[in-house]
Simulated assay, not measured.
Amino acid sequence: MIDFLNEKELRSVFTKELYGNIDEMIEEEKLLMVNAILLLKKAGFCKELKCILLYSFGDSLLSKRMREMIIDENEKKKDEKDERLMIDLCECYLTLVNDFPLELLSICVPLLLKTASKKEENEEAQKEVEMALMALSSIHFFEYVKKELFLDEISEIIQFSQGHRNLTHLAYQSAWRFLRYRFVHDQELKDVVMDELHVVEEATKELKELTRSVNWKAGEGEGKEKKEEQIIIRWLNTLINCYDVCELSCEGNAELVACVVKLFRASNGHCYEISHGSINLLGAMISRKSACVSDIVGKGVFDVVLEKIQQSTLDCNITRSCMKFLWNLSERLRDEAGHKADEANFEMLKRKILEKLEEEGYEDITTSFREVSPFFDEGNETFLNDSEVNFFVNI
């Protein structure tokens, strides 16, 4: 049943009251801990897969019980520890809580990385590895984890999978998500991820495979969301975060640009989150100069954005993303003038784009946006209200 719950339903079911009832049933021995763990791991898995925030668990008595159990079990002698119980408790706790005590991270991270390092390719082992990496990926970017607790292990897990493909798509994406979140506290990790582990190339391969595996013919909202679609959304979010903090050269990104354009066309009208995420990723790449202007035209990005914004029905988020993309493209064309080796070809390309923008009326709009540019500083475009967005759409 949990698989079929949407975000609103998950929030209404997994409340502080429910967690309190579960804790009381465990205390009164009406519910075995092993069964409570099964339920909570499932809830945490769905919460993380669907990228949903649930705030009730951290303040509950059940959270306190689990936290104390993890610490107590960890303090036992090695031959007295129940490692399977500790793994289950760590997975439940990490996937459901939003603030992680440093003491628990120092216990849970090495333990779950040890589980995730299993190289067996049977289904049971793959599920264990997937859940361990999913739990690790739930440790948000604002949480500091010492590099010595994870870097060698997570790098080895990713590199081994690159050669042997022993991880599921979700497990592999979760490994990358966990590592990406560590950028915030250690900028040197960017070099490891980009130069040694090749996140762009790997993400492109994964997105291509996942795009082929989804039945895009079903209309939007038909049936429950597929696991593959959720993994695509997680990849898009991870890549957006990467480009937000890394200025990467254009070389090597053309294939990703083409892949995302194809993904957008496939998902448009089928999955709102994927089509919206695709536009946001392309916008991040053009903003951070990680996509060549020639690729933006040659791979069809420019046409995709214009097609989308010209549809008769748009919500404000898609509109905002499209307008931000056109804004960033216009800025790129101005910033890069005079800095190209092949100046003649660049000027011709620039003129072609600007003429198209002017023909469609968007150059006037981006000029108008430039007059209210404070909205576009520090990510403040999210504060444009519906009436302002509708005004630009009507133009």
Rank of each mutant, 00 (worst) to 15 (best):
S12I: 03
Q310K: 15
N6K: 14
D23S: 11
V34L: 09
R320H: 07
E360P: 01
R165L: 05
K308E: 02
G338S: 05
Q126W: 10
L111N: 01
K324F: 15
F391R: 02
C316P: 09
E75N: 15
R234I: 04
E156T: 08
S278H: 04
L112A: 05
I107L: 15
N21H: 06
E201R: 12
E123R: 01
R332V: 01
K50H: 12
E359S: 11
I365F: 04
E73A: 02
K308T: 06
L151C: 09
L384A: 04
T313F: 07
A218P: 00
F45L: 10
A337Y: 03
P110R: 10
Y243K: 00
K147C: 05
I37F: 14
V245F: 15
V301D: 00
E29M: 10
L354E: 12
K340F: 00
N122I: 01
G277F: 05
L39T: 01
L18W: 07
K226G: 13
F141D: 00
E206M: 12
V372A: 14
L112W: 05
V260I: 15
I154S: 05
D72H: 08
V129E: 00
L281T: 02
H185F: 14
L102G: 11
L189V: 03
L133T: 02
E347P: 04
S117W: 06
S249G: 12
F302R: 01
F183C: 05
C316M: 08
K81Q: 13
D303P: 01
K227N: 10
A337Q: 08
H169M: 03
M285K: 10
E343H: 12
M134Y: 04
A337L: 06
A341I: 02
N215D: 12
K340P: 01
I157Q: 02
E153P: 11
L89S: 07
T168S: 15
I70M: 11
L38P: 15
E75Y: 05
E128K: 15
S249R: 10
K118M: 07
H276T: 02
A258Y: 06
E143G: 09
A218L: 11
S287M: 05
E307A: 04
W327P: 00
S373F: 08
M86Q: 08
E123D: 11
L133C: 03
C90V: 06
T382W: 09
F264H: 13
I87L: 07
E343T: 14
M1C: 06
I309L: 05
M66A: 05
V297W: 13
E220R: 14
L40E: 00
M25C: 05
